[in-house]
Simulated scan of single mutants.
Amino acid sequence: MSDVDEDLVASSDGEEDMMTAPEVLQRLEEAWVIERMSPTLEHHQTDVVDCMLEQIDQMTENIKKCKKQDFRAALHKMEIDRIRYVLSSYLRVRLEKIERYAHHLLEKDASVTDPLQAVLSPQEASYAKEYVSSMESHFQKVVLQQMPEIIRGFDAVKECVKPNLESYVFFKVKKAVPGVLVEDFRGEGRDEEVDLEEGSQYLMRYNTVKDLLQSGTVVFI
Results as ranks from 00 to 15, higher is better:
Ile150Pro: 01
Ala176Pro: 03
Asp184Ile: 04
Lys158Arg: 15
Leu213Asn: 14
Val157Met: 14
Gln214Lys: 15
Glu124Met: 04
Phe185Cys: 00
Glu197Gly: 00
Gln214Trp: 14
Pro178Phe: 01
Thr208Asp: 12
Arg190Asn: 07
Lys210Gly: 06
Glu183Leu: 14
Val177Ser: 03
Leu165Pro: 11
Val169Ser: 11
Met147Asn: 02
Lys210Cys: 13
Leu144Asp: 01
Met135Leu: 13
Lys129Phe: 07
Glu136Ser: 00
Ile150Ala: 13
Lys141Val: 03
Pro148Met: 04
Gly199His: 06
Arg186Leu: 11
Phe170Gln: 14
Met147Cys: 05
Thr217Ser: 07
Lys129Ile: 09
Leu165Phe: 12
Met204Tyr: 08
Pro122Cys: 08
Thr217Leu: 09
Leu165Gln: 11
Asp184Tyr: 01
Glu183Tyr: 01
Ser133Gln: 12
Asp211Val: 12
Glu198Ala: 10
Ser200Thr: 01
Ser137Ile: 02
Tyr127Lys: 08
Lys108Asn: 05
Tyr168Val: 13
Asp195Tyr: 01
Glu107Cys: 08
Gly189Trp: 00
Gly153Phe: 11
Arg190Thr: 00
Lys175Gly: 02
Lys175Ala: 15
Val157Glu: 09
Cys160Ser: 15
Val169Asn: 07
His138Asn: 06
Val119Gly: 04
Leu165Ile: 15
Lys210Glu: 14
Phe154Leu: 13
Glu130Trp: 01
Pro178Lys: 13
Gly189Val: 00
Arg186Cys: 04
Leu144Ser: 00
Leu181His: 03
Glu188Met: 08
Gln146Arg: 10
Gly189Gln: 00
Phe154Glu: 05
Lys141Ser: 07
Val157Gly: 14
His138Tyr: 08
Phe170Val: 12
Val112Gly: 03
Pro122Val: 07
Val119Arg: 08
Leu165Asp: 07
Asn164His: 12
Ala176Arg: 13
Ile150Tyr: 05
Gln214Ser: 15
Leu213Cys: 06
Ser133Asn: 11
Asp195Glu: 03
Gln201Asn: 00
Gln145Lys: 11
Cys160Lys: 13
Gln201Leu: 05
Glu188Cys: 03
Thr208Gln: 06
Val132Ala: 04
Gln123Arg: 15
Gln146Ser: 09
Met135Ala: 10
Ala125Leu: 12
Leu144Val: 04
Ala118Trp: 01
Ala128Tyr: 05
Glu159Gly: 05
Val173Thr: 08
Glu183Gly: 01
Gly179Met: 05
Glu183Asn: 06
Arg186Trp: 06
Arg186Asn: 09
Lys108Cys: 06
Ser121Arg: 09
Leu181Arg: 07
Ser126Lys: 10
Lys175Ile: 09
Val194Asp: 07
Val143Ala: 01
Lys158Gly: 12
Ser134Ala: 14
Arg190Lys: 09
Gln146Ala: 05
Asp109Asn: 06
Val142Ile: 06
Asp211Pro: 02
Ser167Glu: 15
Pro122Gln: 12
Ala110Lys: 15
Val218Tyr: 04
Ala128Trp: 06
Ala156Trp: 15
Ser133Leu: 10
Met147Asp: 01
Ala128Cys: 04
Tyr168Asn: 08
Tyr202Ser: 00
Gln117Pro: 00
